[in-house]
Amino acid sequence: MANNAVVRIENLKKSYGKLKVLNGVDLEIDKGEVVVILGPSGSGKSTLLRCVNLLEEPDSGKIFFRDQEITAKGVNVSKLREHIGMVFQHFNLFPHLSALGNVMLAQEKVLKRSKEEARQIALKQLELVGLADRVDHKPSQLSGGQQQRVAIARALAMDPYVMLFDEATSALDPELVRGVLDVMRKLAEEGMTMIVVTHEMKFAREVADRVVFMDGGYIIEEGKPEEVFEHPKHERTKEFLGNIS
């Protein structure tokens, strides 16, 4: 089974009660690849992303993470999540901890790094996201954009094999979006494997290696950004892209 895929999804299905949210999704993300998932609201993008680190439990289908089937029984879910970074729309920083504390906590408690090591790594990560001068600030003292960059640093400090971004800039005031996108762009350039759900078309066009268009719980179309953006094959894709731009 060994191949280059970091994440491989096979025929994934998920419903909430009667509502079918994912209707058989197949997707493979290679090492170093940046996949952007587009699609209208409610099409199942978040659910798909959250299945990858098992925040949601799939009904059927298989997901492999670095050749390990994580949908199999007896998988240590916490262990699995250690190296899958996730960035949420609403940041979800720990409000009782400083920026530094947020980035250090899981390093110490989960990866069992020493306090000093965790601190050094946290400082480095915060510097990389441009927050070297904000390390001691509480989340409530930071802007939304700064909070989201702390959240990215927090995930990166865990040495993830893949980063999941779920509308990381949707909750931000427009002037704060760029700072976060720049960090994501830099990360992509450095070769991070990323699955990004976003409505930022420019980012998708410029950064994505591959664009996936979802609707109604199906992947309707996927391909290189220039293909999907310039020559969308499906009606729904055309409609969606037309509405957006």
Binding site: R81, F88, N92, A151
Partner: peptide
């Protein structure tokens, strides 16, 4: 979201 953020970092329930 706090539970999810903690979980996504690999913390178990007790942590």
């Amino acid at each position: 979201g706090q539970f999810e953020a903690a979980a996504s970092l690999g913390m178990n329930k007790a942590q």
